[in-house]
Simulated scan of single mutants.
Amino acid sequence: MRLRGRGVASNAVGRFEGAVRVAVDDGWSAPEDMVLRTEVRLEQARSAISYNASPDLPFDRSVNPYRGCEHGCAYCYARPSHAYLNLSPGLDFETKLIARPGIGAVLAKELRARAYRPAVIAIGTNTDPYQPIEATHRVMREVLEVLRDFQHPVAITTKGTLIERDLDILGPMGAAGLARVGVSMTTLDAGLSRTLEPRAPAPARRLAMIRRLTDAGVPVRVMVAPVIPGLTDPEMEAILEAARDAGAVAASWIMLRLPGEVEGLFRDWLAQHAPGRAEKVLARLADLHNGASYDASFGVRMRGRGIWSDLIAKRFDLALGRLGLSLRQPPMRCDLFAPPAQAGDQLRLF
């Protein structure tokens, strides 16, 4: 059986479940192709901003408009988060989604708190805020409108071309030093992308999106992520050059990460879609993580260690210099932060 338009084929239960469900052949033949529809549940958000103290991350706060992601990327490191919802990190992660309408009002309340001090809010660090269901639910638009009204800096990571809908907000914010976007590119091969990231825009479409964002005044960073050693790493320089030509001004890279259930799901993907490369990819990962497929230690999880990590880092640095791309972008402005007036506020005399 082949699942059309989905990144993985397994729906194994999460690691917190007390029972395991096993599919049993009852004699009725399953269709060769099967379509799983996307289900969306609504959640009333009690808080909007999530804080972290990770030394690997350049931000300390984020907002997540959605749980789960319809893009269905087989390699997505966020898949294990669905296990906390008693859902599978496999197919459930990309078919049983949770939208958080009303989170904008919650965010506004948190930004008005007397103790709040502005710093860049990152969006898209767990699941993509511009996945297809955003067209209907518009939760990301809701969040952006609040950040615009408060003149609060935001950094967005996405593959989704729905971001172009919000250029009326992002363009002025970008010009004012209040917004920037990271566009993740895994490969330029449309066929490979279709199996790796089945419901994400094609690579050429993402490059066109970079051009539209840039033309609107939004600084764009291309994120070569994840780099899959033995499969997509030969494309690094080509991705950087194509993104530079489309208008990107900065770049970064992250090695493939396989936390929790993602390892088994990605091994299955390799066996099905790239059997001739599977042994090489897994051997490279083992070299990067001292014999394991993944090491979650701070300072290691994003890059790995050893000769292959050093080689990719060197290639990346050389390409940045040759192409004129920047590793770091200027800091965004926090000095413009100003909660907008609301009914009941005391008027100023001067």
Rank of each mutant, 00 (worst) to 15 (best):
D215Y: 09
V220M: 04
G324W: 07
E39C: 08
E241P: 12
S326L: 15
L265I: 09
A243G: 11
W269P: 05
M1D: 08
C69W: 03
P340N: 03
T157Q: 07
I133Y: 01
F350I: 13
W253D: 05
G27H: 09
R303A: 10
M236C: 06
L42H: 02
L85T: 05
A45N: 01
A238S: 15
R328Q: 12
D215V: 15
L107S: 04
F59W: 14
D25T: 08
A99H: 10
P259M: 01
G102R: 01
A113N: 02
I210M: 08
G191I: 07
T187A: 08
L111I: 02
A74W: 00
P331N: 05
R6F: 05
S54R: 11
G344C: 07
P259E: 02
E241M: 14
A179F: 06
V181E: 00
M223L: 14
P58Q: 08
A283D: 09
I228G: 02
G217A: 09
I228N: 02
W269L: 06
A19V: 15
A115W: 06
W253L: 12
F16N: 11
V222T: 08
A319Y: 09
V143R: 04
G90R: 10
A113G: 05
G160W: 02
L213D: 01
G182T: 14
A251P: 08
D33T: 14
D268M: 06
A74S: 13
T127W: 06
H137L: 13
E263F: 01
A176D: 08
F16M: 09
A12H: 11
S81G: 05
D149A: 15
A74G: 11
I133H: 02
R148A: 15
R180W: 11
D245N: 13
A53R: 15
N11T: 14
A48D: 00
A122F: 13
V220L: 07
M302L: 15
M1E: 10
V222Q: 04
A204Y: 03
G174T: 10
V218T: 10
A250Q: 10
R100N: 10
